[in-house]
Design a protein around this nucleic acid. Structure first.
Length: 236
DNA sequence: GCGACAG
DNA sequence: ATCTTGTCGC
């Protein structure tokens, strides 16, 4: 799929922050799409013993079975450290490399991270939604910024996530007796649609099925790659 | 200065 | 995120 080149992947923290401030103004924080027929889940994995970063994206048909349409993976060297608030500068390059391999562009994309529930309102899902020019939703497993009240223990229950007097997302219960996940708009969709959509693509786990499958695939890729590397080094 | 802090 | 087995609870 097409990758828009909006800005360089700087390694300078101050510049990265400035880029986030500028890009956040270009976000479309409303439902800007028709019926969603395909959905993609994306995730990243790291190798503790090297500086390699792995990515996987899987596209599904939005039916009951979430039939898999296509998948793509990529490997890249980590060029940016993990800094809360600057996650996209670490994970976006390898993710884009995998998205570039997709033949079919999904109608919406689910990311393992925040959308606008972010210090400068530009989390991973928002940043990539802009670059890919696609509706995107942030599905984080923990909270980065904002405050919220306790969520009732019932699937579908949620509480608003407030940051700087703005509603930036929701803490959503996707599974009984399990901590809620944090859903926020990434780009080109609304919070209400994102919330309902996330619930529709959950399959008995806390994490949405598209992201969960991408997580399983990227970890498989990492383990295979590590084993392959060890086979080669034992011969050499 | 102190504490918080997606993956 | 990553290193890792069993184990407590629904």
């Amino acid at each position: 799929m097409h990758i828009r080149k909006i800005h360089p992947w700087t390694k300078n923290y101050a510049k990265a922050v400035q880029i986030q401030r500028e890009l956040s103004n270009a976000l479309i924080l409303k439902k800007d799409h028709g019926k969603i027929c395909t959905v993609a889940g994306a995730d990243v994995s790291y190798d503790k013993y090297s500086d390699l970063v792995f990515a996987a994206v899987i596209v599904f048909r939005c039916n009951k079975n979430l039939e898999k349409i296509e998948e793509a993976t990529a490997i890249e060297k980590a060029m940016f450290p993990y800094i809360p608030g600057l996650l996209s500068f670490r994970e976006a390059p390898v993710l884009l490399k995998s998205f570039k391999k997709l033949k079919t562009a999904p109608d919406i994309i689910l990311f393992d991270g925040q959308g606008i529930a972010h210090p400068r309102f530009l989390g991973l899902a928002s940043h990539l939604g802009l670059i890919l020019d696609k509706p995107a939703i942030g599905c984080a497993k923990s909270c980065l910024v904002g405050e919220y009240s306790a969520v009732e223990n019932a699937v579908g229950a949620y509480s608003n996530l407030i940051y700087k007097d703005k509603m930036v997302g929701v803490a959503l219960r996707t599974k009984l007796n399990t901590n809620p996940i944090f859903v926020s708009v990434g780009h080109k969709t609304s919070l209400s649609f994102a919330t309902q959509f996330v619930l529709k693509v959950c399959r008995g786990y806390r994490i949405t099925e598209p992201v969960r499958q991408a997580h399983l695939l990227v970890n498989k890729l990492r383990v295979q790659n590590i084993k392959k590397t060890q086979r080669i080094s034992s011969i050499t």
